[in-house]
Design a protein around this nucleic acid. Structure first.
Lengths: 324, 324
DNA sequence: CCTTGTTTTGATAACGTTATCAATTCGACT
DNA sequence: AGTCGAATTGATAACGTTATCAAAACAAGG
């Protein structure tokens, strides 16, 4: 019955009397609307598609932030996992989300080289719903939400310089990751501004995993034994670097100061507790969802949302013992 | 047109000629079936609901395992996050999943005391789809998939005993968690079998987080300075315990051996690298999904699946330097 | 060529909701 | 009371698919 629909949808054109009668019947019969029918008919699903990557996937915090914000705005999330970034696979995934009539897509795979192929193939042209990218290099026609990783690198390096370090090396992420390159730029910028050397021998690239931090520290110190501080591009690699330092009988932070990025839960109990740049991942997820939902509603209202009042993502140094 | 439906659904009663004609038209027009309409009409969604907890949420590995297995069996997952376990909230969440006509529910919140209330309230009686619980204490009418944590505790403790330790303490998880209590039982059993003492002063409970491991180690050693080994109920707390040990100028493993549980990615780069009991979380997710999907298909075929040929979840000790 | 049985095709209804519009009721004012 | 406009209610169609059944085409055998 149409009236029932009006009641459950809070339509105002219902008299108080019938509303009560209907509500009574609803509770008496234990009636629950069929969500599938509703979505199908109305064409609105209030669902956002999230595309993540197989390995490592989306960090728990990021997912929490997205889920919380989506729930707060009355949306739910549909997670899709991509095992590779071939054009066919990406296209099929995007289309399959649209087959389900999701209302927007969150691309939660950071910007790496392997994205360039499908981006240039015009796959995006077939996406007819709003889309927001996480941690993507700004490109024409792409809305990217992410931290300022140049600033992140500068912050970290400045902290090391401010405590008197003169030879600051960098263990970076893989160089085909845009965020990794940004952090390198930040590191270099801070050193140059302080008039300190930033030779290429002061950089070693890892793959974000702890073991790679370990070998990177060994590589750096084998090349340049006089290094007195290292900015490590994430906490996990910093953990590996700490282990390598202990194996070399170095005292942290006396001989070498170390600063990481992420402030993962464990970092406060590293030995020694890790100084690190905190990035609030759950906030990242929240803002990304906010941006996407605003795009979706704007599209629905046939209005335009420039999104330029979105909050910025703050980051700050958490000082612990590995770099005072 | 009905014939189109037959073609896309691979119905065999279609002549080769029309099939080709239809397929040609499909590619020419770029036709894609509306999944919402299909699900609504057929009543089958091929979707499983997953209920996780707000804090810490589901581990990445577990989620990966679930997602992979679900995809392999043609199902997708619908994640729901619970912020508390009140009867109303739990019931509403379960019902809202059924409103979406999901075909089965995966309860991915481990067994803690706070579950008892809603379980005893008969909420389950309103769930009309198959349900599988992860890491739940066996109860009547509940299908639980999880590791044998009694065995886990025995394995870990036996490893310490086998290397000659005589005073083996335990840093446990919160005692309202069933898995934590099981590990305590395993610890106690191994000690008793070896004729070693297992006094209550040898146990300190943490909350799974690193810091709690730190304070637990301090508490234990303040009470009993002669402890020479500790079985820590997870790797995160083990990290905290290691830090506390370093602060006390103890040598690990010479003075105190430490073994954890989980084999998290970071544990191989702890200082020293952590000996730990490996539990394959992604396998856990896979098997849980397998169990649930089999229940779902059995229900659909009106057959019975006893599930008693499900693979067991193996666990083993990974020996590193913290307990040789 | 006709009959019979089988395969293929198409027409119609159904799923449970919302949109649309017509019909009815209600209230206020002349 | 009669009139008008507004608020409320109900009937009908529509969404895009699949299920069902009837019709048509086809194949084989006499």
């Amino acid at each position: 019955m149409q009236t029932v629909s009006r009641v459950v949808n809070d339509n105002r054109n219902v008299s108080e009397k019938t509303r009560e009668r209907v509500l009574e019947a609803i509770t008496r019969l234990g009636y629950r609307p069929n969500l599938l029918a509703r979505r199908f008919t109305s064409g609105r699903t209030h669902t956002l598609g999230v595309i993540g990557f197989n390995l490592g996937f989306i960090s728990t915090d990021l997912h929490q932030g997205m889920a919380r914000e989506a729930a707060a705005r009355g949306y739910s999330l549909q997670l899709k996992t991509l095992s590779d970034l071939t054009v066919e696979h990406v296209e099929e995934t995007l289309l399959s989300l649209m087959d389900q009539r999701i209302e927007g897509i969150l691309w939660a795979i950071p910007d790496t080289l392997r994205n360039s192929e499908w981006l240039s193939e015009g796959v995006l042209a077939r996406v007819t719903v709003p889309m927001v990218f996480l941690s993507f290099q700004p490109r024409h026609g792409i809305t990217s939400i992410g931290f300022d990783n140049f600033e992140c690198g500068r912050l970290a390096t400045q902290h090391l310089i401010a405590s008197g370090r003169k030879r600051v090396a960098h263990i970076s992420g893989p160089q085909d990751w845009w965020v990794a390159r940004e952090r390198v730029r930040g590191w270099r910028s801070a050193l140059q501004r302080a008039g300190l050397p930033a030779p290429d021998t002061y950089i070693a690239a890892g793959n974000w995993l702890p073991e790679s931090g370990q070998s990177a520290l060994n590589a750096l110190l084998d090349r340049s034994p006089d290094i007195d501080a290292i900015f490590v591009a994430n906490d996990r690699m910093a953990l590996g670097a700490l282990l390598a330092a202990h194996e070399r009988k170095l005292n942290i932070p006396r001989d070498v100061a170390i600063i990481g990025v992420d402030n993962i839960l464990e970092s406060s109990c590293f030995f020694p507790p890790l100084t690190t740049v905190r990035q609030d991942k759950s906030r990242h997820g929240e803002i990304a969802v906010e941006a996407l939902v605003r795009r979706v509603t704007a599209r629905h209202d046939k209005s335009i949302d420039t999104l330029d009042d979105l909050p910025r993502l703050a980051q700050d140094v958490i000082v612990r013992q590995s770099a005072s």
